[in-house]
């Protein structure tokens, strides 16, 4: 990040966040990335409900799920819990 960091006279009191948490893209932490086989997927939305980062969204227009890679940390819970094994974790930059 090239932005200028604030000095102690300018930072907010007690660390109150002056930016929304969504400005911080925790997807950067990811090592493994979920990849979904749309033929196997039954769109049961279990992954959408259990994702701890709310990074699997329901796209109403497309009537399908989509991964938000800005916030997906690659924990793999979706792949582990998918009842039809439609999600696999692949190494970032691996494909």
């Amino acid at each position: 990040m090239s932005q200028q960091l604030k000095g102690w006279k300018d930072v907010s009191i007690a660390g109150v966040c002056w930016k929304p948490a969504t400005d911080y893209h925790t997807g950067d932490w990811r090592t493994f990335k979920p990849s979904r086989d749309s033929e196997k997927c039954t769109k049961c939305l279990l992954c959408h409900m259990i994702c701890p980062d709310a990074a699997i969204k329901w796209n109403k227009e497309a009537q399908d799920i989509e991964f938000d890679y800005d916030f997906c940390k690659g924990c793999g819970i979706c792949a582990n819990e998918c009842p039809v094994k439609a999600i696999v974790m692949v190494q970032e930059g691996g494909e």
Binding site: W8, V11, A14, G15, V16
Partner: peptide
Amino acid sequence: PLTMGPLDLPDYYFEHKRQ
């Protein structure tokens, strides 16, 4: 709504303790 008591990494913790 405010976020209080968040994580401060090495880039900001020192500034808050100085404050």
